[in-house]
Design a protein around this nucleic acid. Structure first.
Lengths: 242, 242
DNA sequence: AAGTGGTCTAGACCACGAG
DNA sequence: TCGTGGTCTAGACCACTTG
């Protein structure tokens, strides 16, 4: 007994259930942090068995779209401070410890996008972007110089939201309903320039990490482009390959 | 009806099944590439239901310990050229394309480990290491200068295996039965020195990526420590955060 | 046609959290 | 005590691969 209109091709039931639930979350029917109906309720509502709902929720749990708590229920993921931090902020010291970063916003401007931004963010003709420049510090030392570019269409009037939170992703989710679950990073080594010298307090020519990050929302659209220039004197970029 | 001796605490049955299967693979009872018994055979042999075996195999599939092929069966993962390459070799050009790297071995030596190597590789007292130095090229241009350090106990007489394959992990698995499934990387930016200048053909002071990788075998032991110095003039380190 | 993994169901019991 | 997710089972049918 299929519970959904056929999407395009024959899909396993649990995939259809998953996409149905995902759609509701993306559309804001269930907000981040809210409790979903129980597996049995969803199963009854969609006309499938509880095991099928479970399999859909299992995959969504693996993708961190939802969080399950035994005895309580299943919740839409929330970008808490820790989550956003440990998931996307990869800098830590030799012990693997990352002190909570603080941020100092240098400027917030609306402007025309560059051709690279248009293609990477898949911007429409004439769409403007907001450009945030800030310095992030660990233990009171400036470590990262960050250029953040987002579409004004996705995030209108972001300049008015100041002071901006340390983790922008909680702002995106809380104020704009955009959940960042995936990102691609692209890392090269560059020499520090005049700008780096004054803002990161390193000599010109110091080797820095330059990280380009393209972040995707829950529905797979690229929504943020971010360039980070990192001093790696005291911290390193750490990641696990599996 | 439990199928395994209780490990330490009460564990779900499927976890016990998973650990049992994992042990057999680690011990070489089933070699990489070989076909496992069917789910029903395993279930009968272990005295659990087929669904429980399935759940164990599902997790092992997610961890890439095994590969399932519908209609054929479940196989122990093999480090093929592509897998090892695309899984752990993160350098690619702006289009995300990575030409097959070639390697030139500069030296292979046995020596005493440094204190850092002892602690990172968890070496026993008096255990020697093999140190491989090589240059890896993409499209005939030298791009990575690599120092690879492994324990002589894990990989005896590795010097005799020359010419070393491009992807050492296939050698580890094929000749020594050690499967690398997980690694931690630690990235900083450094300036090129004399050595980099001659081997990577870059000017002294050029910013390079320095990647420290600690690779773990299927049973969770650290077995290889590798330092890569990468020129990022034409290629960048690319990774997906999820 | 036979055997494999892939999906789906239905029902049972357990462990946890909250009232 | 009740409702939740977590585990386990047993059996059915489907889709794919091979002979």
């Amino acid at each position: 007994m299929p519970a959904d209109q056929a999407p395009t091709r024959f899909q396993p039931l649990y995939v259809q259930v998953k996409e149905h639930l995902l759609t509701r979350i993306v559309e804001g029917y269930w907000l981040p942090g809210s409790l979903l109906p129980s597996e049995n309720q969803l199963a009854a509502e969609l006309g499938v068995s509880q095991g099928t709902v479970r399999k859909a929720l299992d995959e969504m749990t693996a993708e961190k779209v939802v969080v399950r708590r035994q005895g309580r229920g299943t919740f839409v993921s929330e970008h808490t401070q820790e989550q956003a931090l440990f998931h996307f902020f990869r800098l830590a010291d030799t012990e693997g410890i990352s002190p909570a970063p603080s941020s100092q916003v240098i400027s917030v401007k609306e402007r025309e996008p560059t051709p690279g931004e248009v293609s990477k963010l898949q911007l429409k003709e004439g769409e403007a972007v907001t450009h945030i420049l800030r310095v992030r510090s660990l233990a009171d030392h400036p470590v990262v110089l960050e250029d953040v570019v987002v579409s004004c269409a996705d995030f209108p009037d972001i300049a008015a939201k100041q002071p901006l939170p340390n983790t922008l992703y909680t702002l995106y989710q809380g104020q704009y309903g955009v959940s960042i679950l995936k990102a691609k990073e692209n890392i090269v080594a560059v020499a520090a320039d005049e700008n780096d010298k004054s803002l990161l307090q390193v000599p010109i020519g110091t080797a820095l990490l330059r990280i380009e990050r393209l972040a995707f929302s829950i529905d797979g659209r690229p929504v943020e482009l971010r360039y980070s220039r990192c001093s790696t004197n005291h911290y390193s970029y750490q990641i696990e390959l599996t």
